[in-house]
């Protein structure tokens, strides 16, 4: 990740950006994956057995987190990574609260 930070724009200190990226890839990606899992239980179609909306989010949870983690690591524009993951979290958060 250090090399990626060096390669990206130099507007903020690399170490700060590294921590920000680590924060996004670790705890924030995990939180978003949890919100996605919980939210999907509400918006996924239940299917003929009426259980798909309960089961699929739980089954796919590890993949959700891994995808978000890798995206957070690879996206060169850190702001966009925050925006995308933040939007996912916000949408599902709103679904859960409504």
């Amino acid at each position: 990740m250090v090399s990626a930070e060096r390669a990206s724009d130099g507007r903020s200190a690399p170490r700060t950006r590294l921590w920000l990226r680590g924060l996004l890839a670790g705890p924030l990606a995990l939180l978003t994956a949890c919100l996605l899992m919980a939210g999907a239980a509400l918006w996924l179609p239940p299917g003929p057995a009426q259980i798909n909306n309960l089961v699929l989010p739980i089954v796919l949870f590890p993949l959700l987190w891994a995808t978000l983690f890798l995206y957070a690591c690879l996206e060169r524009r850190l702001g966009r990574a925050y925006a995308v993951i933040g939007a996912l979290a916000a949408v599902n958060g709103i679904v859960l609260m409504v």
Binding site: C34, M37, A38, L42, P57, I58, V59, F61, P62, L96
Partner: peptide, 23 residues
């Protein structure tokens, strides 16, 4: 192995309680 193992670990500790809380 990693994917299935994570599923078995998180299904009852994280997944089930969250889905139960929501639904």
């Amino acid at each position: 192995l990693a994917f299935t193992g994570s599923f078995f670990s998180f299904a009852t500790t994280v997944g089930l309680p969250m889905v139960a809380a929501v639904k």
